[in-house]
């Protein structure tokens, strides 16, 4: 397991190198672009050239790439042209806000998906199974911005129970907790159905195994068979799926954060991309890919830990 972890760590470093090269090639290869973007559409060619030289952008691309990577490794993520401050001043707060949203949603999705998935999968084709399956297909198929609109219509406009914007500013009419309800609800609605179907599929698979039949035939109660025998093995397969949801919850929340004007990481990526704020987009992309790859490794390690029969080469 140690060797496996070391190999995955090496792969992680290589992935991050390639990703950083791709990002650099896409956004900073041609130096003129950066300066003309900063100066706006009315700059004269001389001004662009002068700034290019001042910023050292006329040096060869590989030199600038190494310098950029060096700065990032030292913790200097550059200056955000959109937020008018160092990227470091903005990015960590935003990541924290998103992690708050993501962890609440995760805390709801995990138990709910296991309960619904196991309930549906323990008797394949039963009425309960069909109801849960169809419901989860429908909720996963509604795009987040659409379910945001639906929930806002019901709870903000008709019932007036919740605020329509979640700017995390306290002191208004709405508490921070009430501001979090709708964004979390949209995330859970969109993501839960998918996880439920995965857990259900794993459960259906396990319930057809001979050892379950043996347990039933030796007279064990159905409840005990499901909870004592089937659950653990169904969880082995489901764990990876569940862990991978962290990626969606941290990175995929762009839409949710945009609907509710939530000051999170995804909304920050969108804002900075729309205003061509390269430094922020680059730093955010590196961080998000790092999170994704680390979760994948954690998923693999967890899988090994739960199922000792698996030995990774």
């Amino acid at each position: 397991m140690g060797a496996f972890a070391a190999r995955r760590l090496a792969a992680l470093i290589i992935t991050m190198m390639v990703v950083s090269m791709l990002i650099f090639a896409a956004f900073e290869w041609t130096p003129g672009q950066v300066a003309s973007k900063m100066l706006g559409p009315f700059a004269t060619p001389e001004q662009v050239e002068l700034l290019t030289e001042q910023m050292g952008l006329n040096r060869p691309a590989p030199v600038r790439y190494i310098e950029w990577v060096g700065n990032v490794l030292k913790g200097d993520l550059g200056y955000s042209t959109y937020f008018k401050t160092d990227v470091n001043n903005i990015i960590w707060d935003r990541l924290g806000n998103t992690l708050l949203l993501a962890s609440i949603a995760f805390a709801i999705i995990v138990p709910c998906s296991i309960i619904f998935g196991v309930a549906a999968g323990m008797r394949e084709g039963s009425k309960l199974d069909r109801t849960i399956s169809v419901l989860s297909i429908v909720t996963t198929s509604v795009p987040e911005f659409a379910s945001g609109v639906f929930l806002a219509t019901i709870f903000v406009i008709i019932l007036e129970w919740l605020p329509g914007a979640s700017t995390l500013e306290s002191g208004g009419d709405w508490s921070i907790a009430s501001q979090l309800v709708l964004p979390v609800a949209v995330m859970v609605l969109f993501d839960l159905g998918y996880v439920v179907r995965m857990v259900r599929a794993a459960m259906v698979d396990v319930m057809m195994k001979p050892y379950i039949r043996t347990a039933v035939l030796k007279g064990l109660g159905f409840r005990k068979v499901v909870l004592g025998h089937a659950l653990r093995n169904a969880m082995v397969v489901s764990l990876t799926v569940i862990l991978l949801q962290i990626n969606y919850l941290v990175a995929g929340v762009v839409v949710v954060e945009t609907i509710f004007a939530y000051p999170g990481f995804g909304h920050m990526i969108l804002e900075s991309a729309l205003s061509k704020d390269t430094a922020t987009v680059e730093a955010a992309t590196l961080i998000i890919v790092l999170i994704v790859v680390i979760t994948q490794i954690a998923g693999d390690l967890g899988y090994m830990w739960l199922n000792p029969r698996i030995r990774f080469k």
Partner: peptide, 22 residues
């Protein structure tokens, strides 16, 4: 496979934003 893996390590929505931004 490596290239596919690397593209898969980007969250879809972030990849969309990067490509359309470019």
């Amino acid at each position: 496979s490596r290239l596919a893996d690397i593209l898969l390590s980007f969250p879809a929505i972030v990849l969309y934003i990067l490509i359309i931004m470019r």
